[in-house]
Design a binder for these strands. Structure first.
Lengths: 228, 228
DNA sequence: GAGTGGTCTAGACCACCTC
DNA sequence: AGGTGGTCTAGACCACTCT
């Protein structure tokens, strides 16, 4: 007899995986399961809610709970923080500020940030190193209006870490893709032009104004991995 | 005054984002917050637990709850099912089975599946089309021992959909990367050799045996996106 | 040792949705 | 209209871990 919501979750998961409750089937109500497992309905609710959150179950009031037709559709992904990511590999992290200017960003960047046209932003290019070798090339446009003055010396502190510590964050999105290395990217990362790079692109907004747009070009061989 | 765990979560999130509770700070105990918000401790617990799950808070018994030093570190992302993904774009999905043979997989594949050496697997290559144009090239090795006999005709039903509907799934992992198109991939996807392709690689295991290894090579321009 | 979060209970009311 | 999940409560005990 399972006890505790985790064991109940495991038991339900087993019944799904062994096809005792096949995809599409309606499973017993919370009340019935609470009776079977001899626990409170809230405990069953907790277990089933967690399974619904990962996409194994689909729940609707009155209609009941059914096993998803295509189970395992969601994964939680750790968004790596570069310094920690490098440290986790037992390597030494360092970075070099390649570029720091102010100017109007490309249309594509302004559009993603939903920025009024021709707003000047701070443009930073940073190369992150792991044990002295190129690891990630960071291309960032930063809205000074979103940050408290004065801005720090970004050759000493990473923009990402300073921002999360000092700027109020409201919302954001993140996208992953593959792109060929441009001439300048290839040079910075010491790879061939056109090499397949894993790209992470992030936008963040504050309560009132866009904060920053970042594009991380990862060195070939980079993998983003998670359990299902 | 917030009411309900969602409003409490929103209120706590606001206090974090406005830096009333800055990164690293310890926030009041559940009991204190329950008093302030005039609700049960379980309600506060629910709100704080959700925030901890997304990486905004770090919780430890006795030590209390503190705002994460680097907030927003986890994102949940939907693992797309190809047919639905294509349909979601309003396009027509179709697929062509390019290859179906049986043989011993490459060492790299066998290793990832933790497979005993020299086990013959079914090898499938499938090209998925969106509105008739190449969309994803699927390269799959499937363990017949993990599936109930007989196997279906994979030129009529997609291997993925048949598997989730008929094979007991236990665990798996998924990885994303960028790789240059090989000669055969380039031909199948109608792109230049060496073009940057977004790669999804998935391993799944049953309770007793490895089930399948899949590698999806997405056409250039593909983006995997999610909110933060 | 003591404070904090983690969990469970028994009951209740409500919102939603299918029937 | 009634059944189902969603949520809340007030209380309790436990597990962990910092001091």
């Amino acid at each position: 007899m399972p006890q505790g919501w985790e064991e109940i979750r495991a038991e339900v998961l087993t019944r799904i995986r062994t096809r005792r409750w096949p995809p599409g089937a309606v499973i017993p109500t919370e009340e019935a399961l609470a009776l079977e497992f001899d626990c409170a309905r809230a405990t069953v609710n907790r277990a089933l809610r967690e399974l619904a959150q990962t996409g194994m179950l689909e729940r609707k009031r009155k209609a009941g709970t059914r096993v998803a037709m295509l189970p395992v559709r969601k994964a939680t992904l750790d968004i790596p923080v570069i310094r920690q990511e490098v440290a986790a590999h037992g390597q030494v992290h360092a970075f070099r500020l390649l570029l720091q200017t102010t100017g109007v960003p490309p249309i594509a960047v302004a559009a993603r940030l939903q920025l009024a046209a021709a707003t000047p932003l701070l443009h930073l290019q940073t190369l992150h190193l792991a044990d002295g070798r190129a690891y990630v090339l960071e291309d960032r446009w930063l809205n000074p209006a979103a940050a408290p003055q004065p801005l720090p010396d970004f050759s000493e502190i990473s923009a990402n870490e300073w921002l999360v510590a000092h700027v109020t964050f409201a919302t954001g999105d993140i996208a992953f893709s593959a792109e060929p290395a441009s001439t300048s990217e290839a040079a910075a990362l010491s790879v061939a032009e056109g090499a397949a790079l894993f790209i992470t692109e992030r936008c963040t907004w504050g309560p009132d104004a866009p904060i920053t747009w970042v594009r991380l070009a990862h060195v070939p061989g980079y993998r983003l991995q998670t359990r299902l």
